[in-house]
Amino acid sequence: MIEVKEISKNYGRKKILKGVSFTANKGEITCLIGINGVGKTTILNAIMALTPINQGQILMNGEPINEQSFEKITFIPDAITMLPSMKIEDALGFMNDFYACWNQERATELLAFFKLNKEERISSLSKGNTAKVNLLLGLALDVDYVLMDEPFSGIDIFSREEIANVFTSHLIENRGVIITTHEISDIEHLIDKVVLLDDGKVTKEFNAEEAREDEGKSVVDVMREVYRR
C-alpha cells in the first residue's frame, strides 16, 4: 500500500499542496483527478522523492521510500526519461543495466504490443510512439507500483486506445497503479479508486464501483457535486 499522509508543498509563498492524504492499494488502479495546476504531478514527484515536501510523510508498505524502493515502485512521467539520441534498444539496454527488476521478456512483448521498432531513435518517434516507449520503460519493470502522469494526454486517439488496452491486460495485473488525469471519461470503467483534488486538498476519495452501486452516481456525477460546491 502507498500511503500519502498530510503532505504539504510550497512553491515560494504559494501553497500548492495543503495536507494531501490518500492511500493506493496493490491490485487497484487509483486515479488522481483535478484541474491542471492542482498539484497532481507534484504528488507523484513527491512520492518518488523527485521533489522535497514541506510537511507530511509518504510510505510504501509502511516504509519511507528510498533508492532501494525503486526496484518496487516506478514512475512514468509525461515526458520520456531517456536521451533523444538513444535508439529504443539502447534505452532498454540502459534499463537492463541498472534495474534488477527489469523484465526483458516483457519488454519484448511490449515492443510487439505497441508495434515499435527498436532500431528507431527516440528523437525521431511520433508523439504517440514516444508515449508508448515511455510507458514500456516503466511497465517492463517488475515492480509492485506504477505511477503514471497523464498517460492519455496529448496523443492521438489510436495511441490512446492502445494505451488503455494496457490497463486491462496482464501487464497491469496485481500491481498498484496511480494515474493522474484531468479527463476522466476515457477511463471511467477502468479505474477502481478516485481521489478528487481541489485547491491543494483531497476533496473526496471513493471507489468508483461503490459510487455507482450505492448511490447510482457515475464518477462524473460525483465530480460535479464536489466541484460545484
Binding site: 488503455a164 488496452n165 490497463f167 470503467h189 477502468l190 477502481d192
Partner: peptide
C-alpha cells in the same frame, strides 16, 4: 476485462 475495456477487478 480486456475485451470490454473494463477494470479486471470489476
Amino acid at each position: 476485462a480486456n475485451r470490454l475495456k473494463i477494470n479486471p477487478n470489476t
